[in-house]
Amino acid sequence: MSHVIELTDVHKTFGRKVLALRGVSMHVDQGQIFCLLGPNGAGKSTLVKILMTVIHASRLSGTMLGHPIGHKPTLRRVGYLPEHHRFPPYMTAEQALHYYGGLSHIRRPERVRRIAEKLDLVGMTAWRSHKVGTFSKGMQQRLGLAQALLADPELLLLDEPTDGVDPVGRREIRDLLHHLRREGRTILINSHILAELESICDQLAVVVKGRVAMEGTLEELTCGGLRWVVQWRGADVDSLAFEVEREGDLRTVSLPNASDEDVQAVIDAVRGAGGIVTSVQEFRESLEDLFMRALKDADDLDGAVPGAVQGKVSKAT
């Protein structure tokens, strides 16, 4: 599988003191939905902006779609939805899309066709000749998505795409992303809504304080966190090596990293003691658990405090 984005050792320092990125290396595979997670100020948006030439990295080596980062013509093949974007309020939805489409070198006849198509896709056709300034946040976000999709890009970079979008819209966006992935497009998403990402995420990286604290496929990362939960009513079983939670008549035991045989043993023990097993469930670690784990693992600094690391730039590599 080829890497659509390949980054090694990306550094970005704002001014002299704000170390927004401190050596990020990661890669995104073709046809994947890649989720970039991380606390506020971790540097996620900065990383995406570097890919889109909005911000210049202090140090960088890497490629996007086979070209070095910063190669302008490549951006024609990339769709970008910036965080907190604002369209010129005096433009109608259609005019705005013509503007951005033109900037992406899409010729007019082609643009006319695609604009109609994308407005329809995000459900904004009815508002195409209304001024953007009058749109609600979610409507602007939908328009932003249409803007990102306009060039039929191979790679989509979405910075908090569901920000301000209603539940129906979120679901639509999720379905849309699935659809785009089926078409073979690669998508990189920044988001804080972990529950939402869980169902669509293939690969992920957790950025903490300007460094990648955890990276891999969702499978890989969560199978370490596999656990079984057995519940039963009645008898206490003293012979179990695990901590048992009691709630009235109900007993629950959680078995982290347990094999199927381990679970059988527990069930046998419970039944042997006269308990009635009510449920046996396998749980994967949730994205939230994973996220928290990554924060905790980023040991050198307090990952939970928002914002980038502040300090002097060290010249050491």
């Binding site: 889109m52 302008k72 013509p73 490549t74 900037l103």
Partner: peptide
């Protein structure tokens, strides 16, 4: 202004042309 400029400078069009 923040929010507007990102949409423009992230294009294949060069900054000097813009």
């Amino acid at each position: 202004s923040a929010g507007a400029v990102e949409l423009v400078v992230s294009r294949p069009t060069r900054r000097s042309t813009i």
